[in-house]
Structures are given as C-alpha cells and as structure tokens.
C-alpha cells in the first residue's frame, strides 16, 4: 500500500528532490516548500520507492495537500 506524503503547511513548491522511481529511506528530504520566508524541507516518514509525484516546482500547495506517494 502506498504511503502518502503531505504538505506540513501551505506554501509554494521550491524544489522537488526526487523523481518517480527514486529509492528513498526514512528521513530523506523529498520536497522543499517555501513558506513564511523559509525553505521548509518535507521528509519521508518511510522507506520505499517514489510511485507518483503530484506537484512540481512553483506550484502553490495548501496545508495537508498530497505531495507524493511512496510504495
């Protein structure tokens, strides 16, 4: 079952650090969200393979928005 990676706060996507198919470990940085004048990294809470990425650089995301799926 795929794990969901969600935005911890609203902001704009500053960088996407992985691609579909990337192997990730727990605590790896996946996405950086620019919000509150800071670049806030979003970490993986699980190990696996990136199955789907829902955002790209520059996208505006709301709090709790789905960013990617990890399998």
């Amino acid at each position: 079952m795929a794990e969901e990676i969600r935005a911890p706060l609203a902001g704009s996507i500053w960088a996407v650090l992985v691609e579909v198919g990337s192997k990730v470990e727990e605590d790896d940085e996946l996405v950086v969200i620019e919000a509150l004048k800071m670049e806030n990294p979003v970490f993986s809470h699980c190990a696996g393979t990136v199955k789907e990425i829902k955002v790209k650089k520059g996208d505006r995301v709301e709090d709790d928005a789905l960013l990617m799926l990890i399998e």
Binding site: P8, L9, A10, A35, L36, M38, N40, P41, D63
Partner: peptide, 20 residues
C-alpha cells in the same frame, strides 16, 4: 529550533508557527 512547528502551535493563533 528551525522549520515548521507542530500543527496547532502557537496555540493562541490561527496561523502556523515557524522555528526561529
């Protein structure tokens, strides 16, 4: 501490908290 603070903090406001 830096980065996004836990949801609901600061407890007195409806905006998110940020480290620093």
């Amino acid at each position: 501490r830096q980065g996004v603070l836990p949801k609901g903090y600061p407890e007195y406001a409806d905006y998110p908290g940020i480290g620093g």
